[in-house]
Design a protein around this nucleic acid. Structure first.
Lengths: 352, 352
DNA sequence: GTGATTTCAGTAACCGTTTCCTGAAACAAT
DNA sequence: ATTGTTTCAGGAAACGGTTACTGAAATCAC
């Protein structure tokens, strides 16, 4: 009777396979890795031994011996944010397609942990480290990223920035962005063309690149429509449901409503804002029009007109570019993925 | 002037550090890894050299040389499902706390890819492989899992099943479940105690353990309240938004409404069902009462009464148990995490 | 039947660490 | 001054693979 797989106490090595098959380790290795012209009989014996011992080659030993790393690392703030989750999914999918392993790490937005993660991934010899997410792009940030990029480049790996601004011409980092300003311009224009002029902008946050880009689009649209820009309509907050709720609630509690439409910087904010409006007896779109950003789960439940982002495509593109760029010498690619408006039913014309 | 980090073309090795510091590699290794009683001067020179060369030890070589693996693998259907995302977040968080690295892989629900993933993770010497998610638990499944469990156990790793049923007493797998039946019982009871008797159950799916557990709780509650069980009220579908929409739409299109309340097997289904109801001019909770399951994002937007699951806690517990169990010999642990109902505003009393 | 060529498989060096074992100073005790 | 302890650091053998090089047998051309 054949030994049951896994009976052995210890992991089986290539040596044991070789002994069982009656060949040398070199032969086993060659048969398993490449297309080696082995005698049919030998090959059969080796494969049988592998089967018998349930042998799986030690990835560490293999990596040490020269076989390229075959792993891609993704580092993000958090996995539970739907946007990041989609990006992660895209990365994982493409990684699998390319036959690589996907390492994942989260930072909670802490630069300290980000540094630790990059180091960790470097130690793992990841072929690429993909950093995704909104960030404060100050001088210290740029310096830190440049250091990462150079350190990774030095060992033949590379840094990919996903949804973050580029660092400069001489920093070896691939950049995959999406057009925040363009999307926000489209969203705001949609409200403006429906006759709205007092448009509340929820989720502004100076310093954070994503928010800044979207606010810029909002302002540009106002300017294009020659509607005066009232800074009082831009409300600061993070991109979370509860913040959306808070911002809207505080606004409504503070005094008479001075807006007819809302541009939420993402769908979560939109969701929270909708709830706060409902609490005050205001309906969307009956009383207030609303546009969101991201086209994620909440927008289905809310029937929200929103800006669609190619979330998974971003992740896939990041992996693809990183791997392509590893072969071609030259300036690292920088792509900007475009967005488009998805019309549902959260905007009504405003009759002034 | 100090060399800029990353100037070197090749990754620096421990040998280069040793040479630069004027000591042997053994000394560098000892200073870097453990608490070695080195002469203060020596230690300083080594640390300076490390700094200078921006040296990071090769994790593969380190793993080969005996240092334990220090990585935990999580394998799931998809990262974009909010529930899985939360579990993944919990796993990642706990993994980081324990100073380990987190490997991630998705299967898209394909057993073939699951097998490949487990093999992959085994090759990486993951300390534990955490399998999470709903699954068809037939004989073939049990056999496959047993094989995984034994293969992993043989190399000192272990299998953790998360949200999946246990396999049997002699299979070395840690199990972390949550109480599907209990939660569904509570949810359904809530509706029953509000006077509802015709309760639509959306998302049943024979064979799938999670769905089956929840449906079982639904039925048990009906029995407890001595309400006749009408199989026609159980609608089959997967746990997605669009399926929720489809199920409800088809039901409403088919004829007069024959239910007053809905128990959705998860929040996504609830969301889709709400939209379909709204399309037919029916309001929740005005016309129809609804209870969901999961307490994820949609339930905030919908103001949905739902069953709360300790999503992240599940992931954290999985990692904790796996690591604890690695030291203690004995039967692998099996824990069942409990759930509780979160009351919001999607249920109204039914006056018959 | 001999020499040239091809086929297949073994030997051994190497990848970058860790760690056991050993040994040289330095210091303390007699 | 000699011996016995420490204290610190080096040499070298693993760890489990890959691969260049080498060589023996088998095939072929003549």
């Amino acid at each position: 009777m054949a030994r049951r797989a896994g009976d052995g106490r210890r992991r089986s090595t290539i040596r044991e396979v070789a002994d069982l098959a009656g060949v040398s380790v070199a032969t086993v290795s060659r048969i398993l890795t490449g297309d080696y012209p082995a005698a049919p009989d030998t090959r059969k014996r080796v494969l049988r031994a592998v089967e018998e011992l349930d042998y799986v080659a030690n990835a560490h030993a293999r990596a040490l011996a020269g076989t390229p790393a075959e792993s891609i690392a993704i580092v993000l703030n958090s996995v539970i944010s739907p946007h990041y989750a989609h990006v992660a999914q895209g990365v994982e999918a493409q990684t699998a397609v390319e036959g690589r392993l996907c390492l994942i790490g989260t930072t909670g937005g802490d630069p300290e942990r980000e540094l630790a993660m990059v180091k960790f991934m470097r130690a793992q010899h990841a072929e690429a480290v993909i950093l995704v997410g909104n960030v404060v792009a100050d001088g210290k940030y740029v310096q830190r990223m440049s250091q990462y990029a150079h350190a990774l480049a030095a060992i033949g790996s590379r840094l990919v920035l996903c949804g973050r601004p580029p660092l400069g011409p001489d920093v070896p980092a691939v950049v995959v962005e999406y057009d925040n300003t363009g999307g926000a311009f489209a969203a705001t224009s949609h409200l403006l063309s429906a006759g709205h002029e007092r448009i509340l902008c929820l989720g502004s946050r100076p310093g954070y690149t994503t928010a800044e880009g979207r606010v810029a689009g909002y302002r540009r649209a106002l300017a294009a429509y020659r509607v005066p820009h009232d800074p009082g309509l831009e409300v600061e907050g993070t991109m979370e449901w509860h913040e959306g709720y808070r911002m809207m609630k505080e606004r409504l509690d503070a005094g008479p409503r001075d807006f007819t439409a809302v541009f939420a910087l993402n769908d979560l904010i939109a969701g929270g804002a909708c709830r706060a409006l409902a609490d005050h007896g205001l309906a969307v779109p009956g009383d207030v029009s609303m546009v969101g950003y991201d086209d994620l789960q909440p927008s289905l439940d809310l029937n929200l007109t929103t800006v669609h982002l190619p979330h998974e495509e971003i992740g896939r593109t990041a992996v693809r570019l990183a791997l392509e760029h590893s072969t071609t010498r030259g300036a690292p690619p920088h792509v900007v993925l475009s967005t488009h408006l998805v019309i549902r039913d959260s905007v009504r014309p405003h009759i002034s």
